[in-house]
Design a binder for these strands. Structure first.
Length: 879
RNA sequence: GCUCAGGUGGUGGAAUGGCAGACACGCUGGAUUCAGGUUCCAGUGCCCAUAAAGCGUAAGGGUUCAAGUCCCUUCCUGAGCACCA
């Protein structure tokens, strides 16, 4: 802490205004003091303390302001941060803004105001609201993803990906959302009963071929699955990521086509059933469909393909209607293992986007093929033995069993048969082992204004070839050029050198995207069309004459990066936010590593968390980062529902505004109530009545410590009245339990325990100053303003967090006598106070002698007697 | 359809296989207060006049001296995936 700020703090006369608990009198003052003192500034790596890095998923600063769900997660992380700091850790608890994105741009389209202006205003409001809640945030490290000093490094990371061959341009059909005027990643498209919709806004989306930047996340598919094992994450989230990546192991098998030069390759996870393949199906979009189809079937196939294309998405994804459709192409394929001539069909249950877009159908052992075969009367051949009584003519057998009707595999179990046949196919050149993923490469460009520009120039192939060996432009040049067709000309991507970063956004007259999928940036021709010096990478306006021989005509990339780009690595920037030479210094990265704890909503289980892991692993692989995984421990807070138990929404009118609650009950009460509602991970309804419970607790804590008529320490503390044994034991139990519960994020039970302690304190004849001070320090992470205020009124000059976590004395927990439960046949009939170390015999004797026990045992033969020392006795009688 | 997580008083929720309902809200009664969205005291799972007894953690079955907790079946709710070969 700077000396001057500390002095000012000490000199501030302590306000000892008399009166009842009035949060409005001091919450604001403490917030200002923490800020002025830099009370929660993380210390440098050289401080010698162990580090603890607590991270919240940073918010998108929307115009609506803070939602009640934000403070839920932020309070949880704040309690942990304050607790760890009191325990002596050097804590990093930062906050920033994920501020690129669609809402700001839509606002800009509607009003003409630059998105940066609205973004700044929203950030100011969010910061005000977060400060109002008293979070122990190191505000010196705050930044926004829209800051040029930040996205300079986002662009740098992209260039590294480009350099290492992990970025390319594709013109395959992609999801395009006409309402949003942009393409979307697979992950951003939801399957709804109404068909595929945009995750944001629920607008219809459609497939269109548009030129796109794509990141090769599939190259990391295996690493992203394997890395999950070591992570302390919710199982559900791990499972979600695993399913999303969707790894399947199997084989590719090539079928020759009867009377054709072409062959059809399929992917199957069940090569063992190859002898049972009785027909094939190709997707209606399959490139070979036109050549396969016989003249006789041409019109039928064409009309089917057209029908599928025109089928509404609703119809095509409607699984309630299990009926399968399809048409025979007239072609026949040859089963490579038995030479059988099998028909080739086309049907929309086969997807062009998975595997090879073609399948071998084994109706006896696949439910979908079975349905299709039954529908169209196709033949079936059982090759895996099913249990007694199972009839493959009634249902497909998908389980294990000995192979049958399969020469060379007879009797083998499924797994062995798979291995054997795959090896055979491979030897015969008819197939090979193969792995398939559901994961697609990550569509990384958007036709929007408000995002990071790609630091890339497009030049002609001829000019690309002229880039000299010592050119600055080679800094990020990939080994294989990234090319695409631009206005009918083959163009090559040239990455800007690092010295030219950040590439900033140009001013534009309109933010309106074009319905054809052109970015608003494409209209900024001054910015887009430049001359580039092929040696230095300098650029100059193309409206001027060509500056010299070394200069080539170039066009800037006009797409921008998706919102995920900025959130992929922000947690690394907090470590060293002002660094101008890299994303962070080596020393800082070594000390802080990656977050020790990460909390945020489960809605990011696949998108953000998968993308960030991909980037982190990549940066680790190229030696930038010391650790392979970004988030060792992850937690999802549950939703706060409206009082009606429904999701909060404006239309339902059940939204709870944090500003209102703070005004009425104070920040401490809001924080504490959010934590008291129930388990952190559970979705739970808000209750405006329920908050009075924690309000009362805070008032009682105030009265326990503060003498209301004078405002100084309470008279109770000064009295000589002894503390009850019960209170002292409860105090130590509370120190232990709250510490444990904070580590495991069970804040609701931690607060219950503090309430129990309060009840004991009020029953105790006296409360010592030392005990009270311990109590206040335990409560401080939960209700920091009140506890800080009490701490000061007790005469302490330093902050309460600096006072540390109170020591816990196990000896104080030991009870000399325990209440032992006496049972007869497992039912409680009485209890007895017994010495803790009582022998089994003594316990049994006491139980037998208990009058209420005797009522149930007298005159009955004892069958069994169970004694659990220190706990219970159970006498089992007959009759 | 598949996968996962759940189902405990009027409500939110506690319970290393060992007294179900901690803690809190609400409610009932009482005290304090000019007043109260104040404070304090007592009570509050069901059945019952009361006590004792009995019943009780979605339903049914099982394991165990003992089950909210472990196992099986069924029902319901929520979340995710959705023709992934």
């Amino acid at each position: 802490m700077p000396a001057r700020a500390a002095a000012a703090y000490l000199q501030t006369p302590m306000d000892v205004t008399p009166g009842t608990y009035d949060f409005s009198a001091f919450e604001r003052r403490w917030q200002e003091r923490w800020q002025a003192e830099g009370a929660f500034r993380a210390e440098p790596a050289t401080c010698g303390k162990p580090k603890y890095y607590v991270l919240d998923m940073f918010p998108y600063p929307s115009g609506a302001g803070l939602h009640i769900g934000h403070p839920e997660g932020y309070t949880a992380s704040d309690i942990l941060a304050r607790y760890k700091k009191a325990k002596g850790f050097n804590v990093l608890h930062p906050m920033g803004w994920d501020a690129f994105g669609l809402p700001a741009e839509q606002h800009a389209i509607a009003t003409g105001e630059h998105p940066a202006v609205q973004t700044r205003r929203n950030i100011d409001n969010f910061r005000r609201q977060l400060r109002m809640l008293g979070f122990a945030i190191d505000w010196d490290r705050e930044f926004s993803t829209t800051d040029e000093a930040y996205f300079r490094w986002t662009q740098w990371i992209f260039l590294q990906l480009l350099k290492h061959g992990l970025a390319y341009v594709s013109e395959k059909p992609v999801w395009f959302c006409p309402a949003l005027g942009t393409v979307l990643a697979n992950e951003e498209v939801l399957n709804t009963p109404e068909g595929p919709r945009s995750e944001r806004g629920n607008h219809p989306v459609e497939r269109r071929p548009i030129r796109q930047w794509v990141l090769r996340i599939t190259a990391y598919a295996d690493k992203l699955i394997e890395g999950l094992d070591a992570l302390d994450w919710p199982d559900s989230t791990k499972r979600l990521q695993k399913n999303w990546i969707g790894k399947s192991e199997g084989a590719e098998v090539t079928f020759k086509l009867d009377g054709h030069a072409d062959a059809l390759t399929v992917f199957t996870t069940r090569p063992d059933t190859l002898h049972g393949a009785t027909y094939m199906v190709i997707a209606p979009e399959h490139p070979l469909i036109g050549r396969l189809t016989t003249a006789a079937q041409k019109s039928a196939v064409e009309s089917y393909v057209a029908a599928v294309r025109n089928k509404s998405d609703l119809e095509r994804t409607d699984l309630a209607d299990k009926k399968k459709t399809g048409v025979f192409t007239g072609a026949y394929a040859i089963n490579p293992v038995n030479g059988a001539r099998i028909p080739v069909w086309t049907a929309d249950y086969v997807l062009m986007s998975y595997g090879t877009g073609a399948i071998m159908a084994v109706p006896a052992h696949d439910g979908r093929d079975w349905e299709f075969a039954r529908q169209f009367g196709l033949s079936m051949r059982q090759v895996v033995g099913a249990p007694e009584g199972f009839d493959v003519t009634k249902e497909a057998w998908t389980g294990d069993g000995p192979l049958v009707n399969s020469p060379g595999l007879e009797g083998l179990p499924v797994e062995e048969a798979k291995r054997k046949i795959t090896a055979q196919l491979s030897v015969n050149g008819q197939g090979r082992a193969a792995v398939n993923y559901k994961l697609r490469d990550w569509l990384f460009s958007r036709q929007r204004y408000w995002g990071e520009p790609f630091p890339v120039l497009w030049v002609s192939r001829e000019d690309y070839a002229k880039i000299p060996a010592d050119s600055k432009l080679r800094e990020f040049l990939p080994a294989d050029p990234v090319t695409c067709m631009l206005e009918g000309k083959e163009s090559c991507a040239v990455p800007l050198p690092a010295t030219k970063l950040p590439l900033t956004l140009p001013e534009v007259s309109s933010y309106q995207p074009s319905p054809t999928g052109d970015s608003p940036l494409s209209k900024a021709t001054e910015w887009v069309d430049v001359w580039v010096d092929l040696v230095t990478g300098e650029t100059a306006s193309r409206s001027a004459a060509r500056p010299g021989d070394r200069w080539a005509a170039a066009s800037r990339e006009t797409n921008t990066m998706p919102q995920w780009a900025g959130s992929c690595w922000y947690y690394l920037r907090y470590i060293d936010p002002k660094n101008r030479d890299g994303i962070a210094s080596k020393e800082a990265l070594t000390y802080w590593g990656s977050p020790d704890f990460y909390i945020g909503g489960a809605e990011h289980a696949v998108l953000h968390l998968l993308y960030a892991r991909f980037w982190h692993r990549f940066l680790h692989d190229i030696g930038v980062l010391p650790e392979p995984e970004p988030f060792r421990r992850l937690f999802h807070q549950g939703l706060i529902l409206g009082e009606d138990g429904e999701k909060m929404s404006k239309s339902r009118g059940n939204v709870v505004n944090p500003d209102t609650i703070v005004k009425e009950h104070g920040a401490d009460a809001l924080r504490m109530y959010l934590m008291f509602l129930g388990p952190l991970e559970a979705s739970k309804p808000w209750s405006s009545e329920g908050i009075t419970g924690v309000s009362r607790f805070l008032k009682r804590l105030w009265r326990l410590a503060v003498d209301e008529p004078t405002g100084g320490p309470s008279a109770r503390l000064a009295s000589d009245a002894p503390e009850s044994e019960d209170f002292v034991r409860e105090l130590h139990r509370t120190i232990r339990k709250v510490g444990e519960d904070v580590e495991t994020l069970q804040f609701n039970t931690a607060i219950s325990q503090m309430m129990i302690l309060m009840n004991a304190a009020e029953k105790s004849p006296g409360v010592s100053r030392a005990s009270l001070e311990a109590f206040v320090r335990i409560a401080a992470p939960f209700a920091p303003h009140l506890c800080e205020e009490i701490w000061a009124r007790l005469g302490h000059a330093g902050g309460i967090t600096a006072a540390g976590w109170p020591p816990f004395d196990p000896a104080k927990l030991v009870e000399s006598t325990v209440e032992v439960v006496f049972q007869v046949n497992g039912k409680v009939r009485g209890t007895g106070k017994m010495a803790k170390e009582s022998s089994k015999e003594d316990l049994l004797a006491a139980c037998r002698a208990h009058p209420d026990v005797r009522k149930f045992t007298d005159g009955k033969p004892v069958v069994k007697e169970i004694v659990v020392p220190g706990k219970l006795v159970n006498i089992v009688v007959a009759g």
